[in-house]
Every structure is written in C-alpha cells, then in structure tokens.
C-alpha cells in the first residue's frame, strides 16, 4: 500500500544522493513541484532520466543536482534551447554533465523492458545514425528466428520514479488521464515511486482513457496542487505556454537563472504558486 506523505517527506524518504531518478510526464503532467523540492533539499550527484528534460531538468541541472543525464530530446518545446542543459554540456556549468543519449523510441522501449522485468528491449532503430557510436547502451542483436539485425537497448530501472497525476484516493490508488505518455512504464520500472497528485479524493470515478496505478504498486503519494505548472494537468489547468516562452529569457544566462532559483525555489516552501 502506498503511504500518503507530504511532498517534502516523500522526496526526503525516497530520493538519496547519487540515485538514478526518473521524473516522467510527456509534456503533460510533468512533476515540476517535485523537481523543485529535490532542489530545495539539495540532492546531489543524481543520474536524471527523462525522455524530454524540459524545464524540470533544466532547473535541476542548473541548480547543480545532476551528475548525469539520460535523455532523448533536450529542447524547450516550440521555443528553442534548454539553456541550462546547453551550458552544462558546452561549458560544464555549474559542473560537467555526463550524457547518455537515445531516441524517443529507444527510451520508450527501455522503460518497457524495465517495467517488464527484461534485461533489454529490441527495436528497429538507430540504424545508420551516429548515435550508436557515441552511446554505449545502443547495440545490435540478431533475431534468432529471421536472422534480421535489430537494435538492442538495456532496460531502464531507476532507483526512484516520480510522476504527477490528477488524483489519488485515500488508499493511494492513482488515476491519470489525457496524454499518459510513459508514466506507467517509468513507474513500474523503478525500485521506488513517488506520485504527486492535484488532490486526494474519497473514491476514483472512472474517466475515459484514464489509467489507474494500484496503491500496491506505488511507494508513496503526496498532494501537490498545481504541481505540474507550467506544464499542465488535463481537467485541472492548461499548459502555461507563455511561461515556457519566458523561461527562454530566465534561463539564458547564469545570473538571471540564479536569481530566479533563489527567489522562486530556494526561498519558498512546498508547491510553487
């Protein structure tokens, strides 16, 4: 059964320095509040795993929490670059960042393998690209039935996966809907899991296209209303596209980012407004 904790307790209990951590949510339901709590608690040397680092990892990287990034697309969607990610890769600020780079299809299949208890996944991917030459976790395998050569990628099994969902019930069953992305696979692939939710309700009403993650598959649930902003929670609030655009200027240089971090994250407690 999932424990109901505060966000601060959840992050403190589940995430340790040096852990491999996946904060997932494909554009929708990105666990931003949890990421900022990780920053506030000063976690260090994390291996951050995420298909699209997005603002959540730009913030963690700029705040110095990450030693390594495992990812497949590191941009600000529809806007441009993630400047803190770029500064870390190009200039080693605030310290060097090791990267392990895949394609979306590769990352998705790595989570599927992790959730399935398999050591690796097979896909048609990467053939002819320069990625296999730079990423040691891309290899080829020969199909034992057809002789065809295919790509093989190792399972992702994070120490901790953190996701954000619309709601949970008092027993800790979690419900999410809309674009559900890769969250189920990422959560089931992990050793431990923390789910932040918009609200805890007495019982879960079915929602078309919704998925439920049963309480016994989740380690802890914490309420974090608005915990996905400026990403969004379908049925609760919309994506704040203006803030995604503003992030370009906030994150562009180290001084403005540091000032933002200080005023918006480090000097606040819990969920940002």
């Amino acid at each position: 059964m999932a424990k109901i904790l505060s966000l601060a307790e959840g992050v403190a209990e589940l995430i340790n320095d040096g852990d491999a951590v996946a904060l997932e949510g494909f554009t929708h339901l990105i666990p931003m509040a949890a990421g900022q709590e990780v920053i506030r608690q000063g976690k260090r040397d994390l291996t951050l795993i995420r298909m699209t680092p997005d603002l959540v990892y730009d913030q963690l990287i700029g705040a110095g929490c990450a030693a390594k990034l495992v990812f497949s697309w590191g941009g600000n969607p529809g806007v441009g670059s993630l400047h803190r990610f770029r500064d870390a890769v190009q200039n080693g600020w605030p310290h060097p960042l090791e990267i392990e780079e895949h394609s979306h299809a590769g990352m998705a299949n790595r989570y599927v393998a992790g959730a399935s208890g398999l050591p690796f996944a097979v896909l048609r991917g990467y053939s002819g690209t320069d990625l296999p030459g730079k990423t040691p976790t891309i290899k080829t395998i020969t199909c034992p039935f057809t002789g065809e050569e295919l790509a093989a990628v190792p399972a992702l099994n994070p120490d901790v996966t953190v996701i954000h969902a619309q709601r949970a019930d008092e027993a800790g069953n979690v419900q999410l809907w809309g674009i559900t992305g890769i969250q189920k696979e990422a959560l089931l692939a992990a050793e431990r899991s923390l789910v932040t939710v918009e609200e805890i309700v007495p019982s879960l009403e079915p929602v078309p296209g919704g998925i439920v993650l049963p309480s016994w598959a989740v380690t802890a649930v914490a309420t974090a209303p608005g915990g996905s902003r400026p990403s969004y929670a379908h049925g609760y609030y919309e994506r704040d596209n203006e803030l995604y655009k503003q992030w370009d200027a906030i994150s562009r240089d180290r001084e403005s980012f540091t000032a933002w971090l200080d005023s918006e994250v480090l000097r606040t407690e819990g969920t940002p407004a």
Binding site: S72, W73, G75, S81
Partner: peptide, 15 residues
C-alpha cells in the same frame, strides 16, 4: 560548439 536538442522521434520517423 552548439548543443542542439537531439534526436527525439526523428530517427525512427525518418526510418
């Protein structure tokens, strides 16, 4: 010199 976003879905779309 310049780090771009990377692959995303493109390699398999192209394939």
């Amino acid at each position: 010199k310049v780090r771009l976003p990377g692959a995303g879905g493109a390699p398999e779309i192209a394939a």
